[in-house]
Amino acid sequence: MDDIGIFLQIIFWGLYAGCIYILLGTGLNLIFGVMKILNFAHGEFLMIGAYITATVFLFTGINPYIVILLSMLALMCIGAVVERLCFRPILGTGKLNEIFLSIGLIYIFQNGAAMIWGDSWQSIKSPYDGITIPVGSLSVPLDCIIIITLTAVILVALYIFLKKTRIGREMRATSQNRKGAMLIGIDVERIDVISFSLGCALAAAAGTLWVVSGQVFNPYMGSIPVVKAFAIIILGGLGSIPGAIIGGLLMGIAENGTAFFLGGVWKDAVSFIILIIVLVVRPTGLFGEKKG
């Protein structure tokens, strides 16, 4: 493989890695956009999604790219319960409560998952394990192509939902002006639970793609991705879905590019270096809007 080939391959790995970040970041942004809450336990929804997909796949043999739907549905239900029981009572009572609540949730989900599935690292083999297809001069795993395609499909579906459906429009209205939405008769509490559930479903999708890509997972896997997801939404602009998409892609490519040029130890650091630069130059993030 020549230098250009290696570079293109690295960009491709960045695109694929970015897909998982995009789904996680978009879900987090959806929740933040509507409810304005900080949920540090969002990575645990990715973890649970990963385990649900892996468990169903191992027990039934159903293709994990189909199980993703079940995993997303399960996380929507879990998300609805968490929103209703945990976040709704403290909504508007201060960021400190949200932070401590989400830290509590992290412990609950991590220890709960460890009790159910054990705390060893696990992995599964995708049904398309070992199949590679030529893309230009590159030879890439079929799973990565499916992951990129599936992410695009989910994002298009989300776009249509937000733009074309009544609930989607109500979510956008609530995101733009919560009081205004209430005044025109939108049931914002209903919108909150839908947004939170959708955000969790996107995290479940990210978790599913994580396991089918051949990465290992355990109950503590969510802590690093959630920090990156926060960096992505700040980078892209708080509450901005296009911002989360661009931020996720940038993050994936920058991380892999940096690992190539500077070494793997800089992989995590570069995300935050970019974040700091963007915040200095444009404090609202790439797609964030100035208030007032």
């Binding site: 690295i10 790995w13 890695a17 290992v216 793997g264 130890v265």
Partner: peptide, 20 residues
């Protein structure tokens, strides 16, 4: 000589460099 952070799960980039 390629390094990675402890707990990393995606090694495709350093492996691509090594293959090169």
């Amino acid at each position: 000589q390629q390094s990675f952070k402890m707990g990393e799960s995606d090694f495709r980039t350093p492996l691509t460099t090594i293959k090169g």
